[in-house]
Write a protein that binds this DNA or RNA. Structure first.
Ligand SMILES: [Mn+2]
Ligand SMILES: [Mn+2]
Ligand SMILES: [Zn+2]
Ligand SMILES: [Zn+2]
Lengths: 140, 140
DNA sequence: CGGCATGTGAGAACTGTTGTCGACTGTGCG
DNA sequence: CGCACAGTCGACAACAGTTCTCACATGCCG
C-alpha cells in the first residue's frame, strides 16, 4: 500500500515548478534551501517511484548522473540547449517509423529506442556572448 | 608525445577480437584472465584515449556504466540485442534530417544527437526460450 | 485511539571512475 | 649504443552518485 507522506508530496511539488531537468541531488539541495527537511535517500526513493509511475522522465548526463523531469505521458524526445539547459519536447512519426523499420529489417522484435537532441538555443547564440554568468556547468 | 606501450597495444587488441560492447572493467578482467598484467587506471586511460581518437564508440548502460566498442568512423547508431548483446551498426539519412530539421524549427544551432535502438534479435526470440545460460546480465 | 505495515533518514557501503605519486620505460639525441 | 627525461604505469586513495541498513517515526485502517 502506497502511503501519502509530507516528503513525497514535496518532491512532487518541486517538479511542478521546475523548468527542465534536475538531478536527485539538486532536488534535495533545493528542498533543503527552501526549508523542507528531507533525507537524500528519501529523495532518491521518491523520484524512483515517480519514474515507475510514469510521472517523471529520466535521462543520463554525459557524466553519468541521472536527471529527471515531469513529462507528458505520450512518447516523445528532448531537444536540450547545452548552454542554458532549456528543454523542448519534440516528437514525430518519421523517426519512430524509421527506428522500427530498421530494427525490423535486422530481425529484431520488441523494439524501443532512446533519442536526445542537443544544440544551442536561439537565446544562447544570438547576442555576442550572452552573459555566461548564470549558465549551468555541464551539458544538459 | 604519444608513446607505444605494451599496455596500450594490448587494450587495442582486446577490442579487435571483441563482438559488441565491453566496459573498462570487463576489458581489465578479460586481460588479467588472459595473463596480461595491467592496471585498471591504465585501462581507463587507454579506452579514453581511443575514444578521443575516434577509434572507439562509447555509450552508457541503463545503470550508468560506460561501455565501448570499436567502430567505423562514419556517423551511425546502434541496434543492440538486449538478450545476447549482439550489435548492429545502422544509419540513415531519414533520422539525421529529421533531427536537424526539428532542432532548426526551434531555433537551435550546432545540433548533435544520440540515438540507440534496443530489441530482441532473431536468434534470441526464435526458439522457445533460447538457453539463457550464456546470456549476459543486464541490458546492453 | 491503537496496531502495525510502510516510510524515513543518518550514516555506512558500494560502484564506477578519476587523481596521486613514486617507480619505470619508450624515444630521440649525442 | 647509452643517457636523459617526458610520457606512462599501477597500487592505492579519493570521489561522485547511488543504494542499503536499521532504529525510529508516522500514515492509515479498523
Ligand atoms: Mn521516439
Ligand atoms: Mn544520427
Ligand atoms: Zn539556451
Ligand atoms: Zn540476441
Amino acid at each position: 500500500m502506497i502511503r501519502n507522506t509530507r516528503q513525497r508530496t514535496a518532491v512532487n511539488a518541486v517538479f511542478e515548478e521546475l523548468e527542465g531537468f534536475a538531478s536527485a541531488q539538486e532536488v534535495h539541495a533545493r528542498m533543503r534551501a527552501g526549508g523542507d527537511s528531507i533525507g537524500l535517500s528519501t529523495v532518491y526513493r521518491a523520484v524512483q517511484a515517480l519514474v515507475d509511475d510514469g510521472e517523471l522522465d529520466s535521462i543520463r548526463t554525459d557524466s553519468g548522473e541521472a536527471i529527471y523531469r515531469r513529462c507528458s505521458t505520450r512518447h516523445h524526445h528532448h531537444l536540450v540547449c547545452r548552454v542554458c539547459g532549456r528543454t523542448e519536447e519534440v516528437e514525430g512519426p518519421t523517426v519512430e517509423r524509421w527506428a522500427d523499420r530498421v530494427a525490423g529489417e535486422h530481425g529484431f522484435v520488441d523494439v524501443k529506442h532512446t533519442l536526445e537532441i542537443f544544440g544551442t538555443c536561439a537565446a544562447c547564440h544570438a547576442p555576442a556572448e550572452p552573459s555566461p554568468v548564470d549558465a549551468p556547468a555541464d551539458q544538459r
